Computed example of a mutant assay.
Amino acid sequence: MSDAATPADAPWPTVAQPRRRVRLDFQHHSEVDAVFDPVRQDLSALAVLGRSMWLACDETTTIEQLTRTGGSRWSDHRTINLHDAFDLHGDESDEIDIEGLAIDDGWLWITGSHGLTRKKPKWHENDPSVAMSRLTEVKSNVARRVIGRLPLVNLGDGMWSPSLVGTEDGRRPASVRLKKGKTPLTKSLAKDIHLGRFMDIPCKENGFDIEGIAARGDRVLLGLRGPVLRGWAVILELRMKLTKSGHLKPRRIGPDGERYRKYFLDLEGLGIRDLQADGDDLLILAGPTMDLDGPVALMRWPGAWTTRVQKQSIVPYEKLQRVIDLPYGYGTDHAEGIALTERSDGGREVMVVFDSPGAARLVDGTAIRADLFAYD
């Protein structure tokens, strides 16, 4: 919570209700030459441009593309395997744990969580020794440390397609270089006075965990679900450059030569679940850092893109705006991805997709309903 005292009679935030819902139609992955079915159960990221939508499932190495085919329907599902664009090392079946998608100036940006994972005891395992043994297993997956971008090709009529090999204007896919399980960013973070000790903690235990990305030019903002330090969430700013080898690499922009700058935001104890650029502002989907259900709120950081801070900075709660308190379920309906979409009358709405969807969201075996909330 904020340091300021909360009056005993302060009203509890009113949870917003969606203005309407849209249907997202996925095919079975077996029908689109992929391995995980159905993707709708584990949606983790969202980006929208015109009539094109991209989503990620945190159990795959792919992103999913849909096209708006009606006023409230997105379909024509195709799957894009990132192993065809990036050198991710490891086995092609290893999940990337994609947790952030963003669009800027003809590029689709992608980030993995970078987090470690701990085995979870399965509900049907009655032997306590087996359960305890699983809890000792911590895994590091190199592919989770990807940050990359794909060039988008304008197909006309509001439709776009990411290129996996390059475009006529010379733009090519690029990602950070993975070497011996590390990247320039993770090597720099390992020495960080605030974050270094969390790099070896599993992501769902307040360990290091990226769950949002936003971009503008060479500036990339990464939102951390964890760690949350004494109630303060973290955003990292990177300034990307393209190396001679064709890889992305963050420049040294920190006060002591770090490849990032840090911003600490008072989100009242919540971590960051997604980011969305909105003009000069930044929208932040805030939710629990641990494996909990809620609360969940959409926050705005005014002027985030115009305030070029040259050193570490903190952003108190009073400098942020609470836009919407979002609904959540108990064990279901965890808000994971946000995107701004345009209505036919020129107004805008916030689209939200959910992980662990409740039964009421699931339609016809492979489709799911996403929520649209009033914004403008």
Rank of each mutant, 00 (worst) to 15 (best):
K204A: 04
R216G: 06
G181I: 11
K191Q: 15
G231A: 10
L224V: 09
M199Q: 14
R177Y: 03
D200E: 15
L236G: 03
R225K: 09
P227E: 06
D209C: 14
G231R: 04
A215N: 04
K182W: 06
V234S: 08
N206V: 08
L221D: 08
D218P: 13
L221Y: 15
P202A: 14
M199H: 06
V234F: 00
D192R: 05
L195I: 13
L178W: 05
R177S: 14
R216A: 14
T167D: 12
A233G: 02
A174N: 11
I201R: 14
E211I: 07
K180G: 08
S175F: 01
I213N: 03
G207E: 06
A214H: 03
I235Y: 00
E237L: 02
S175D: 05
C203T: 10
I213A: 06
S188Y: 09
R177D: 13
L229H: 02
G196K: 07
G226R: 03
R219T: 13
P173S: 10
L229S: 03
D209P: 01
A190N: 13
R216L: 13
A215C: 07
R197S: 15
I201P: 00
F198P: 02
E168W: 10
G166C: 09
G217W: 11
C203G: 12
F198A: 11
G181V: 13
K204H: 04
L189E: 02
M199P: 08
T183S: 07
